[in-house]
Write a protein that binds this DNA or RNA. Structure first.
Length: 263
DNA sequence: AGGTATGTTAATTG
DNA sequence: GCAATTAACATACC
């Protein structure tokens, strides 16, 4: 689930809850999210404060006072929760890491399927390079987007989901963008003329910005968004034709073949 | 109970 | 070099 709009929502949540508080303790219930020992993470964090955050694609980077950054990736089911401890919530069992502040609250990285990751890095740009991340999808100017399309083969859906080219779009938002642009996900990049490339860029920005405004919540999205209708037996929110569930580039895709004519 | 699922990575094949 | 496919990771849902 966590794609660009969701991670941007997590970022704002972290900014609103967790900055400028002394870190008293770090609890790690699942070492697999770390690439260092919990002891070393504790040494790096205790006594420090989180002071700022930024996002690159689906990755959240959090700056520490006196240097250094946390880098969070949420995998399929990760999210952040801030709560007054101790937690007896049923979510508590899935908190992989908790950062405890001196105000009695904690920020937890919760990851039901244990695919989230937390790293330390000195430099966000080096972290991005190491993880093969292209520019953030919302930081990419149109001319750069068009240049990226130029020497590509393969489907437009796999292009949009390629984090090395532009970072932040996953399976669900690639479906949404292509639905809003009226482009079938199996269409190959070379078959898009310059008008459609321009329209796709504009749509990509509109969809991501709108989804951020909705906090990544499908229930809050506009009536004509596909996202709330991703499911078996649902109908197109525009023309009410039955949605097709197909496989593209190895991923599951929802498409309205009336609004998005196949190649 | 097997198939499928939002994410990434690695290996393999064309 | 690029693209597609498959498996792996761990767990939940149908």
């Amino acid at each position: 689930m966590p794609e660009l709009p969701n991670v941007e929502t997590f970022r704002r949540y972290l900014d609103a809850t967790s900055l400028h508080k002394r870190i008293n303790r770090v609890e790690c219930a699942d070492e697999k999210v770390l690439d260092i020992t919990p002891q070393r993470l504790g040494q790096a964090l205790v006594g420090r404060q989180l002071i700022a955050s930024r996002r690159r694609g689906k990755h959240l980077l959090v700056e520490l006072d006196r240097g250094g950054w946390l880098a969070l990736h949420f995998g399929m089911t990760g999210y952040l929760r801030y709560f007054k401890g101790p937690s007896e919530d049923r979510e508590a069992a899935f908190d992989a890491v908790r950062i405890l502040f001196d105000n009695g609250f904690a920020l937890a990285l919760n990851t039901r399927r244990k695919l989230a990751r937390l790293r330390l890095t000195d430099d966000p740009d080096r972290y991005a390079t190491d993880h093969g991340l292209g520019p953030d999808a919302l930081e990419l100017p149109e001319n750069a987007f068009v240049d990226l399309l130029d020497d590509r083969r393969g489907s437009i859906k796999s292009f949009l989901m390629n984090q090395a080219l532009l970072a932040g779009i996953g399976n669900e938002y690639s479906d949404e963008i292509l639905f809003q642009a009226g482009i079938h996900p199996t269409v190959t990049v070379d078959r898009l003329d310059s008008n459609r490339r321009h329209a796709l860029y504009t749509t990509l920005r509109d969809v991501l910005e709108r989804a951020v405004e909705c906090g990544g919540e499908p229930t809050r999205m506009p009536d004509d968004f596909l996202l709330p209708h991703r499911g078996a037996g649902e109908r197109c929110p525009r023309c009410s034709a039955p949605l097709k569930h197909i496989k593209v580039a190895g991923r599951s895709a929802f498409v309205c073949e009336r609004c998005q004519p196949p190649a």
